[in-house]
Amino acid sequence: MVHKLSLIVNGIKRTVEVKDNEILLDVLRDKLKIKSLKAACWRGECGLCTVLLNGKLVKSCLVLAVEVDGSEIITVEGLVKDGELSPIQRAFIEHGAFQCGFCTPAFVLASHQLLIENPNPSEEEIKEKLGGIICRCGTYLEIIKAIKSASRFYQKK
């Protein structure tokens, strides 16, 4: 059966047709052309397909597309406002918090959500909250530095 989904993706209303057995990750990447999410492990272990689904981080490789009709989805593309990078994106650049960049969209999105929920996280909290995402290059220390430095922008909010 084909379902017509209506979604708000990064603030824009989108409609898309999906079958019962389609995975949200594939629909976002291949049908809606959101390429920041990466398909890497396909089984919920690496977290590179993480999106914000109705305000909660989820791994989109473990979500059926048909489940999320009517939902709001935010990916890292949605953090850019009027062409300006968000503070957390700038902090990642300033601290060189990536090497190959494959995991960066997921880490930026999860870091952004972490700072919204807790603008002044301890190092332990950062590690705990990002524990579900894997950086194959091992830039974790720089990521932690970037989050700490961006935290002041979230405190002002």
């Binding site: 057995n21 389609e22 594939d26």
Partner: peptide, 18 residues
């Protein structure tokens, strides 16, 4: 992006949301 390998796709089923 199904590479034709089962590992990346789901078998066919009917979805119900009671």
């Amino acid at each position: 992006m199904s590479f034709g390998s089962p590992y990346f796709t789901l078998p066919e089923f009917t979805y119900h949301k009671p």
